[in-house]
């Protein structure tokens, strides 16, 4: 067992919580029943690592086997690191018929044509997702297994999710992906977050959305005795209306756990009470970041409680509607520099 395999196992052991170790090793299914039994999971991590290193040594396992183990753990616990979403564009006619074996072969061969030292491992997960682990090297050095890139692609969809990718590796990965999925281009989907499941659900619309028809009437008869039924009824109307608009904008029930959204505003400062600034030529540059443990639920609560005015501004409802959380907002005027033209006056 060489040094890099040893280090990979040690790092893996540091990362994995002890209570998950047993099931992950079972899924790996490389240990014999006797070896599995010999491991005492109540021992310290250090002792367990030593025991595992011995077993690996005995079986002459290499980086290949250890990275397999790491991959099993990452697939089961994808909500770590920073995930970025990408979208494949302009599919060729046969893009819909790309299946796993073909994709696997093509991806590996395209990538190794682009870079000499690279190690790729591809695994199909139960939910149709193809998981790819890439350990990068360069012309002079062997693949570094300690800093792998993980890529998740749902076959026959344009969606790709990536974590730990450097700007140097990005064009290589993009080209290999575009070629092997039979597309012409790939673009940044402007969506990123720590929870892989959340950004996947948001982009692939795998959550409960609300439609106007779902709410038959904002006014409901209530049988409760209230101090002043007239006031109660008068307030119930707008409140129910706000809730409905909030749900229409952000969704109903549990929402994907998106943690942040960033807006880069390059718009003019307009304020009737401030002539000097309104007449100013340049735009008012600022960056606004919204953050919460569940951003969409927070924003829905803002709208339903009245902190945010309803109807919800397109800027905020664009997060679920367009499935992105990074926006550059400029005034709706012709200009090559703007990434997204959005009228901000509502």
């Amino acid at each position: 067992m060489d040094d890099s395999a040893k280090r990979l196992l040690q790092r893996f052991m540091r990362r994995i919580p002890t209570q998950m170790l047993k099931t992950t090793l079972e899924k790996w299914s490389r240990l014999t029943v006797a070896q599995q039994k010999s491991l005492d999971f109540t021992q310290s991590k250090w002792a367990l690592t030593e025991a595992l290193l011995d077993i690996c040594e005995e079986n002459k396992w290499t980086t290949k086997h250890i990275s397999e183990l790491e991959m099993i753990y990452v697939i089961d616990n994808p909500n770590q690191g920073m995930w970025h979403a990408f979208q494949l564009m302009d599919p060729e006619d046969d893009a819909h018929s790309v299946e796993l074996t073909q994709f696997k072969e093509q991806f590996k061969s395209h990538l190794s044509e682009l870079i000499r030292h690279v190690s790729v491992k591809i695994k199909k997960h139960t939910d149709e997702a193809v998981w790819i682990r890439i350990a990068w090297g360069d012309s002079y050095s062997r693949p570094n297994h300690l800093k792998p890139t993980y890529v998740v692609h749902y076959l026959q969809t344009p969606y790709v999710f990536v974590t730990s990718l450097t700007s140097k590796q990005k064009p290589l990965l993009s080209q290999a992906l575009v070629l092997s999925t039979r597309h012409h281009a790939i673009k940044d989907a402007n969506l990123s977050g720590k929870k892989f499941t959340a950004i996947r659900d948001l982009l692939m619309r795998q959550y409960q959305q609300a439609f106007p028809t779902k709410y038959p009437s904002p006014l409901k008869e209530k049988n409760q005795t209230v101090s002043n039924p007239l006031i109660e009824r008068e307030q119930a109307g707008p409140a129910a209306n706000r809730l409905q608009m909030a749900c229409e904008a952000f969704g109903d029930g549990m929402l994907p756990q998106l943690q942040s959204a960033v807006y880069k505003l390059e718009t003019k400062f307009r304020d009737q009470t401030n002539k000097t600034m309104t007449e100013r030529e340049e735009s008012f540059r600022c960056v606004v970041k919204f953050a919460s443990t569940n951003l969409l639920e927070s924003l829905r609560d803002c709208a339903s409680s009245g902190i945010a005015s309803t109807p919800v501004t397109p800027l905020l409802s664009s997060i679920p509607l367009k499935g992105r959380n990074y926006f550059v907002i400029t005034d709706n005027s012709p200009g090559p520099s703007s990434q997204m033209h959005q009228k901000t006056d509502g």
Partner: peptide, 26 residues
């Protein structure tokens, strides 16, 4: 921070020069 559930944190970062110009205008 906004008092909603879950709590919402808003970070508002303004360009130094633009902030200064707004300040002088008021």
């Amino acid at each position: 921070t906004l008092p909603v559930t879950p709590p919402l944190q808003i970070t508002y970062t303004v360009d130094a020069q633009d902030a200064w110009e707004l300040w002088s205008s008021v």
